[in-house]
Amino acid sequence: MTTTMLKASSVCKSFGPVDVLRNISLDVAAGEVACLIGPSGSGKSTFLRCINHLEKIDGGEMWVDGERVGYRRVGNKLHELKEKEIARRRASIGMVFQQFNLFPHRTALENVTEGPIIVQGVRRQDAIEEGRALLARVGLGTKMHNYPSQLSGGQQQRVAIARSLAMKPSLMLFDEPTSALDPELVGEVLDVMKDLAESGMTMVVVTHEMGFAREVADTVHFMSDGVLVESGAPAKVLSAPAHARTQSFLAKVL
């Protein structure tokens, strides 16, 4: 029996009067790569941000690795967790952003070692060793002492992936990781993500890269207007979509 890494059950979220997520239910098994696709404004990034409680959900329930995200249930009520507890849970969920969000005042290596040293209390020397290994793994062994401003977009995004991996996460979230990159730099980031998928990492990826979804994803989920329209194997959702909305979206992007 496979364990469930992410379980979302009827998740709802609204920004004021706008319902951005409507009853999203989604299970991701350990080791699975799930790609979220859909038009912009469909709520897929918001859903991703709810998984590590950067956004609060207004309804439904969500668990990561068996632990409820952001809340504690007492009787019939959900109480939001204390800041420390939220932070502790976020530490085991990696997140990669569209705009990289590297710390500009720290070198590549310092970006990677910051979390382990400050959050996890790992010894500096151990963190540095681990950081070097991680940067070598994403192909940046020679760029450890460069500042983000001295790296290309693709290199920055690979440092950002290494920074997340340094926390030894059980789940990795990717929020359109290649959308801000020049076309010729997309490949190097997708390659790192593919390696990561092959190593057995559980990943939820919001992406517009249909090729990546087809090749790497175990499941593809199509969202539109805050609704999860269709889920299934990439071959099914991308090649033989059942819903008209999925068909018209794919007709535009493929």
């Binding site: 800041e83 932070a87 976020r90 997140m95 705009q99 959050v119 920074r163 926390m167």
Partner: peptide, 13 residues
């Protein structure tokens, strides 16, 4: 984005 990145690696406020 800087604050979000810091939060995402588990930093407190």
């Amino acid at each position: 984005g800087q604050t979000e990145a810091a939060k995402s690696i588990g930093m407190t406020r």
